[in-house]
Design a protein around this nucleic acid. Structure first.
Length: 466
RNA sequence: GGCGUCGUGGCCAAGUGGCAAGGCAAGGGUCUGCAAAACCCUCAUCACGGGUUCAAAUCCCGUCGACGCCUCCA
């Protein structure tokens, strides 16, 4: 039984799907107006891990992630750059999908976009107006009437009265209540716009998610996810819209990932302290980012520092190295040792599941995996054969895959590889003639170029890019 | 000011009533021509102050501190 922490109830709850065996998962994707940064990567990784785990536990996951492809920021940016806003968005969507692939994030089942859901959005707005939950202002804006929604604020734990006191919200003449939020924004000249019963305009930010959910997944979904910075107002408003429209509870479980911290502060576009995914991947393996996420708790802030990244990379190396084949020429270990290794593999599967069942406790799960890593290495050192290592190594491959880790480095040197092969071959020749100084020089120089060399006891030599 | 999350070794962190997982780093060893990798050993009483309990990192109260949200944000 999987338990997850539900932001709505502030506690861990047993996961019960609406429909047996199926998980309807909706995750808020990015607004595509600039390069995605590693904070976006963290969120995408978190929900990829969650999705993979539910699949591992036998669920069919319908994973939906939207792209907000029309809003003020996109329009402003496009105007600045003097490009078409739709083309701008299109480009960033393409980039984002590539990043997801580089990070080994499974593609969502569906990627709906605001601009492609326009009729559903309008239908929903009209429905809310018909039910008295929304009203059109004199300028063509349509607002949601928060006072009509009795439990408005239940997700973020706010009350309308509290929010007004000391609030920085400018009271707009057009709104009945300062907290009323836009479902439809009337267009200014030159802005992208769609015709509607309320005049030419575009959807507000929150309504698209409600409409897409309704359209793609239905009136009720199992899990709604996103960064915890979306709890208010975005998710709060989604709940208000969806539940007012359908009269039914919207998402059963609200899961939120913590913010990635760069030097103690949230990484965000507005603070300008960001590292883009592209920049990260220029220096690091995509799995290093995943490892960093796995080492922490998805709900907590994630420390993103040189030191924590390096630790993640080294841990990843350790994990990968454990899959090395048996030492050549070995004759095997005792049946008892073989058995205890196989037993530990089973125990590891069990503890892995126990940890992950407990609100996706990835760092706890990794703890168990590394126990197995050590035992595999010990067995190999003791002379275990490939066959004897197989059960444990298979468990490591299986569990790593559930976490989404690739067990092989994706880094190559391209054309340089064959030259490295040549140099390593040359060094082997030097070593056979005991030209230690030269062979060591070669090894040291290759190291500075990012190539690590390992000589085995049997005489073979392997190398890899750091 | 309001709402929320949290404070565990040098760093990242698991554990939420019964001898403090794991990763990284560091030091010492084994192995190695030398390395690397691997293995072994060493390295914390859990922000602080009270309280409950046979027993608390784990429950309660208080203090201090951090972070997020309250405005667009994964």
């Amino acid at each position: 039984m999987i338990r997850v922490y539900n932001t709505l109830t502030h506690k861990k709850e047993e996961f019960q799907p609406l429909e047996p065996g199926v998980v309807k998962l909706y995750v808020c994707g990015p607004t595509v107006y600039s390069d995605a940064h590693v904070g976006h990567a963290m969120s995408a990784l978190v929900f990829d891990i969650i999705r993979r785990y539910f699949e591992y536990r036998g669920y069919q996951v319908v994973h939906v992630m939207n792209f907000t492809d029309v809003d003020d920021k996109i329009i402003n940016r496009a105007n600045q750059m003097k490009v078409d806003p739709f083309e701008l968005a299109e480009g960033y969507i393409r980039d984002f999908k590539e990043h997801l692939e580089d990070l080994n994030i499974l593609p969502a089942t569906l990627n709906p976009r605001a601009t492609q859901t326009m009729d559903k959005i309008q239908a929903m707005i009209q429905g809310l107006i018909d039910k008295g939950y929304a009203y059109a202002a004199s300028n063509g804006d349509v607002y949601f009437r928060v006072t009509k929604d009795a439990d408005y604020g239940k997700l973020s734990g706010r009350k309308l009265d509290d929010m007004q006191a000391g609030s920085r919200i400018e009271v707009e003449e057009l709104k009945e209540h300062p907290m009323d939020f836009a479902l439809w924004k009337s267009a200014k000249p030159g802005e992208p716009a769609w015709d509607s019963p309320w005049g030419s305009g575009r959807p507000g930010w929150h309504i698209e998610c409600s409409a897409m959910n309704l359209h793609v997944l239905g009136e009720q979904i199992d899990i709604h996810g996103g960064g915890n910075d979306l709890i208010f107002p975005h998710h709060e408003n989604e709940i208000a819209q969806s539940e007012s429209f359908t009269g039914k509870p919207f998402a059963r479980y609200w899961l939120h990932n913590g913010m990635l911290q760069l030097s103690g502060e949230k990484m965000s576009k507005s603070l300008g302290n960001l590292i883009t995914i592209t920049e990260f991947l220029e220096k690091h393996d995509g799995d290093a980012m995943r490892m960093l996420v796995l080492n922490g708790n998805y709900r907590s802030p994630l420390s993103f520092t040189e030191e924590s990244i390096s630790a993640a990379e080294q841990g990843l190396n350790r994990l990968r190295t454990s899959l090395k084949p048996a030492t050549t020429g070995v004759t095997g270990v005792t049946a008892e040792m073989e058995k205890s290794l196989a037993d530990l593999a089973e125990i590891t599967r069990k503890t892995f599941t126990e940890s992950m069942d407990d609100d996706i406790n990835t760092s706890g799960a990794l703890g168990g995996i590394f126990e197995l890593v050590r035992q595999v290495n010990t067995a190999r050192d003791a002379g275990a054969t490939d066959k004897q290592l197989a059960s444990a190594q298979n468990a490591l491959r299986e569990l790593s895959a559930v976490l989404g880790l690739r067990m092989e480095s994706t880094r190559t040197g391209g054309d340089a590889d064959k030259f490295v092969d040549l140099l390593v071959e040359l060094r082997t020749e030097l070593r056979s003639q005991k030209f230690w100084a030269l062979s060591d020089l070669l090894r040291d120089r290759l190291k500075t170029l990012g190539v690590s060399i390992e000589d085995s006891k049997a005489g073979g030599t392997t190398w890899k890019w750091d």
